[in-house]
């Protein structure tokens, strides 16, 4: 159905109004207001240099990226085979697995995070089991450190990866795989030369979604991480709640937003290009 330009905008209007009112306006107001409170341009420049020059803050930015990258990697490694299995399932088995993936989302993220804390604590179920099996002598430190953050965040973000990859894999014409096999390709070659390239846009989209969500994550690292696993969202919250340093929080927000938008623009450019090649 061809749409006129006007009716197109009318259909988009409610969403645009909501986003503007609840997201765009507050964030511009927050950043502009915070920075304006410093005074003129030279004061803002000085604050920027001070904030982004602080080793603690630089370390947090680095930490955040490393954690987000690690989580993305684990989500991909776990999610790819899962999605493949899901894309091959039919009927009741498919529904069951899908429900298992999506159902946790009906419970609060705080509840789920506490559940992980019960599992991963020094006297938690995982350590108890490993100790009683005699696999370890000392309880493993799985909580309040990087390991805990990675486990918790990978768990929370995995479904985004799985569902994105699933959509890409479901779109692959299975006859192409059969054709490749008929032309002499071994199973691994079929995967490497046909299936992987045909699902690569899903891999990129999934990684991007997970990375963008991970880089701004707050609750899981706050509850399951240690002091050295501070992430940017936590730092922003701390600057406002504890230090009441709104300009620093605003500057951190700009950095976070810039990373996200930069990644998104790279992705959409790539997507346009592959579209032109006829995917």
């Amino acid at each position: 159905m061809p749409l006129g330009r006007l009716s197109q905008w009318l259909l988009l209007a409610p969403a645009l109004a909501l986003l503007s009112a609840l997201f765009l306006v507050p964030i511009v107001w927050f950043i502009a207001g915070s920075l304006a409170s410093l005074g003129g341009a030279s004061e803002i420049w000085g604050e920027t240099q001070r904030t982004l020059g602080s080793t603690a803050i630089v370390k947090t930015i680095l930490n955040t990226n490393v954690i987000a990258l690690t989580v993305t990697l684990f989500a991909l490694l776990l999610g790819y085979p899962m999605s493949f299995a899901l894309s091959r399932l039919k009927g009741a088995a498919f529904t069951l697995v899908l429900v298992c993936i999506v159902l946790p989302y009906f419970t609060s993220i705080i509840v789920r995070t506490y559940a992980w804390m019960v599992l991963l604590g020094r006297r938690g179920i995982v350590n108890d089991m490993l100790l009683s099996l005699g696999l370890i002598d000392q309880p493993l430190a799985l909580l309040y450190n990087r390991t805990g953050v990675i486990i918790g965040m990978t768990y929370v973000l995995l479904p985004y990866m799985v569902l994105t990859l699933y959509a890409a894999m479901k779109a692959v014409d299975m006859r192409l795989l059969q054709a490749a096999e008929g032309m002499g390709a071994r199973p691994f070659e079929v995967f490497r030369r046909v299936f992987l390239p045909l699902t690569m846009h899903g891999v990129l989209a999934g990684c991007l979604i997970v990375f963008i969500l991970a880089i701004g994550y707050f609750i899981t690292p706050a509850l399951m991480g240690g002091p050295s696993d501070m992430m940017m969202a936590m730092l922003i919250e701390r600057e406002i709640e504890l230090s009441q340093n709104w300009p620093a929080a605003a500057l951190m927000t700009i950095v976070l937003l810039a990373i996200t938008l930069a990644l998104y623009s790279i992705y959409s450019r790539f997507n346009d290009q592959s579209g032109a090649e006829g995917f």
């Binding site: 014409d173 006859r175 192409l176 059969q178 054709a179 490749a180 008929g182 046909v194 390239p197 045909l198 006829g278 995917f279």
Partner: peptide
């Protein structure tokens, strides 16, 4: 030669 050709789109 397959029905619908099975040409690799990538």
């Amino acid at each position: 030669v397959f029905q619908n050709y099975a040409i690799f789109p990538h």
